[in-house]
Amino acid sequence: MAEVTQLIHEYLRHDKKFPHVLCPGCGHGILLGSLIRSVHALGIPKDDVALVAGIGCSGRVAVYVDFNTVHAVHGRALTVATGIKMAKPDMHVIVVQGDGDALSIGGNHFIHAARRNIGLTVLVLNNFIYGMTGGQCSSATPLGCWSTTTPYGQMEKSFDFVEMTRAAGANFVSRGTVFHVKTLDKLVRQALVHPGFSLVEVLTPCHTQFGRKNKFKSPVDMYQWLKKAAMPLEAYEKLDPDKRAGRIPIGVFVDNHEPALETRYAAMRAKLAKG
């Protein structure tokens, strides 16, 4: 196993201060590891990767890894990534966003990037909360959960990232967790090579801001919950609907192969060039 960490260290920016800024037990680091392993396994050169992040804890991930990294403004990572991808279609443009970044402030961009089916790999780190700003509820905070801005419980329903992205028309839609790392690696690898808009919703615990207020005693408790709650999509579908409550399906939900926006654009240009 030694190669795993050794490999990751080859991709980290060691002139950046480590350990990283994230809290003990935060799953964001696990996703970063997964991303590095996936890029390496696919043999993608560092130069060909543009990693665009939004604002929040997820936004801090980008600075630690030796790709072309962009830390954008809150909610707008997808717009910057769209510009990069259209200007350099051969680059692998990866977007790391949090739940608040992607579907609260950045919801409009998210829907439209999925609709356009532009060739971005989008990793949404869903921790159900605004972590960096101090634990306020987000559009992913489940009904009834507590946060600093829902001190009497969340009254609003949360977004289902998978269904939202499917409805918007993305090519590849999947969900994984940072506990099920080998599945996650597989999903990230698939998303990286899949043409068009590819989403991996990554469930990641935030004990500091979400867990503490929602009856999780430790970060480990949250991972125990992920371990129990998550199950493969295929098994989930066979489950009696009455028994689905509290279970989270993981796996690939949408696997289409429609041409990506940049492919359609290139085809239009070729047609125009012919006259």
């Binding site: 543009a50 954008a72 707008r76 717009t79 910057v80 990069i84 200007a87 409009n108 961009h109």
Partner: peptide
């Protein structure tokens, strides 16, 4: 490259991305 974005925020965001990409 021409792209119509979903709003003005996205328009400028896309321009910034493309500018970083050398355009």
């Amino acid at each position: 490259v021409f792209i119509q974005m979903e709003d003005e925020i996205a328009s400028l965001g896309a321009c910034i991305g493309a500018s970083l990409a050398g355009r």
